[in-house]
Nucleic acid binder design. Structure first.
Lengths: 210, 210, 210, 210
DNA sequence: GATGAATGAGTTTTCATTCAT
DNA sequence: CATGAATGAAAACTCATTCAT
């Protein structure tokens, strides 16, 4: 930690084999983090889970923190991608809310554990903090835009501040993902999606279309 | 020489001085945990923050984990106590919701950071896991009871399952406490309370009294 | 962050270098234990005596106790091996007793200090206690068998219970090893062997062959 | 340890109450040492077992080692006293050997554990080493004198060196005490005494009187 | 004196990182 | 590049002894 570094800084792998090894380490790191939290996230365990030797870890990652950043980057990208899938649900606004909630919940399922761990451990790392903020902002922005459209269409309570509402309702979904997937409260996922959607719809004063 | 626990387990302090020292260590532990997360939570730093020498830590706590359990216990008790203050708000159900939300938010303000840290770090400690579950259950139970009363009084949507609703809306409040106090999203606390209350009231279909 | 064993248990060394290092630590541990008792038996001193750095100790041993078990195992194996050498002394039963006693004394020479230290420190460790019992039992069993054969050949007092006699005479030899090698009573080893053999022979009523 | 000592050196207690407290500490120390080995021999546990407060320990003993010396002194004195009881057995030399062995075994019963612990732990303390040597010497001397008298009376093999014989047979008894009382080999005490005596008598060529 | 709290040096253990082969 | 051993600073814990009341 903080030694003067005589090791060559890892470079992007050039061969296919190198890429595979790097990917394996990245995947192993993420899985361990999700499955066992910080306790499982050591260079040695990651290397072992990836099926390579201990020293190889440092061929591909500068440090443990370097891997952590890579994991968070991967999780964030996945969140962006997955959450784009949702909106193609057509027509009925309530059905869209249900779909959106289902999508959000699913997206957070994979991300929640990692992001929470990082939120706590990232006291010092600005890169990480930045990533977390960007993920949050993306979600808030999307939620706010969706609400604004409903309001403009006269389908939702026009008095609600879109951004604040998106923050609050987003908080609800995120925390429920945590409750279901990490705390393992024995709840049926579909039931939760439906219930959240009902509450959400009522909260924004969703008016059934004609 | 052969292993075996030799040191007697720390006992409760007998003198006033001892009680003060133990309290100081407990308070210091909690403050460090809140302020700096796991990084600040070492016996050495705790002892230093409490103004006592290194070894004194082990006069009162069996281990680092022992202090952690004591901190969580303290936080949990505070949550219980603070959250009892709310319900004396009279009359108007909406005013009561506002008061409850303000109370919850305030209560979580102190508890949130610690509880989240512990949620992540408590993979192995059953005592801790149990405490966390109890705290959650208390909140869920109270919320569900409150809703049931409103339903029985014909003031809220009778179709909502009280427990599930309490879980979801409780999730909203808890996560908002985190957003405001830990992530430091620049939001006005009163505004958030009002907004959450409005959404909450709409969500449960609160009917204005006569 | 949350507790839980994170470090993988040390595995057997894979390379020759690793084997050498492990052997050096084991040897150093044994030597220190014999030379300085518990006081010299610290991971730090062992590592230093083995000429490796502090942390290397834990590359090969899980803990101080783990090394202790390994040392006892080594001592026990040596005892087994060395004590097998004796019996090939031919013909004359008395000559065989002398050889056996010389062999036992020599075998205990290396083992005595370590086994006694462990006997005291092994209050809690069942693995250790088991090893000690096995070593004792081996010796008692061999002694009893030897006596039984002499009795069957009509060369020793047939009224003596073989097992009890072996225990008592074995006790004599073991303690004499301690007296000579640890307490450093200034006695000539050969003289002791001869004397013990004479007493032993008389005790079991050894009859000179024809 | 090795600090500059501002504490008043403990003085011999003057009041009866003081004497009682000191005795209680001494007794507790010995009992813990016998029952739990070094693991139980801490100032705190000793004080607790003696029913006084922690700090009081240092009112009566300068240090842990100081108590240890006192315990060994007590054990040694008891050995001296108890072993004097034996010789009044009259007449028959074999009966006297039986009585002596019974007495030795009984005497070592209390002493064995403590003396062995000290033998291992007393690497540095010359006072302790000296005490141990004196105890040993007393026993060897007595045994040798007994044998010499038998030889002079024509009742034992005159070729045996008295001192060496006493050392060897004494070793047998001492180790048997350890085997029975500490290792808890399930042996009947009387049977052992008889068997040892038989072997001992045969070993020295004891001739039945007339 | 007696009490129980306080001390801090010493010991054990951990683990991210570096190095020799 | 890959491997597995080596490193050592930092963290956790112990406990004989001293001190304030």
């Amino acid at each position: 930690m903080g030694r003067s570094r005589t090791n060559p800084a890892p470079t992007a792998p050039v061969t296919a084999r190198g890429r595979r090894t790097r990917d394996a380490l990245l995947a192993a790191g993420r899985e361990l983090l999700e499955a066992r939290g910080w306790a499982g996230f050591t260079p040695e365990q990651v290397a072992q889970a990836a099926g390579v030797s201990y020293g190889t870890f440092y061929t591909y990652f500068e440090s443990k923190d370097d891997l952590l950043r890579a994991v968070v980057r991967a999780v964030a990208e996945e969140l962006f991608t997955e959450s784009l899938v949702g909106p193609d649900a057509a027509g009925d606004p309530y059905a869209r809310i249900v779909e959106a909630n289902r999508g959000y919940l699913k997206a957070w399922r994979g991300a929640s554990r990692v992001l929470r761990l990082v939120e706590q451990g990232a006291d010092t790392d600005d890169t990480l903090r930045q990533m977390l903020l960007e993920v949050r902002e993306l979600y808030v922005h999307r939620g706010a835009e969706g609400l604004r459209r409903l309001q403009e269409a006269g389908l939702a309570n026009p008095e609600l501040d879109p951004r604040l509402t998106a923050i609050v309702l987003g908080a609800m979904v995120e925390q429920m993902a945590h409750v279901i997937y990490s705390l393992r409260e024995p709840l049926d996922e579909d039931e939760v999606v439906n219930h959240m959607s009902k509450l959400w719809a009522a909260a924004i004063g969703l008016r059934p279309q004609a």
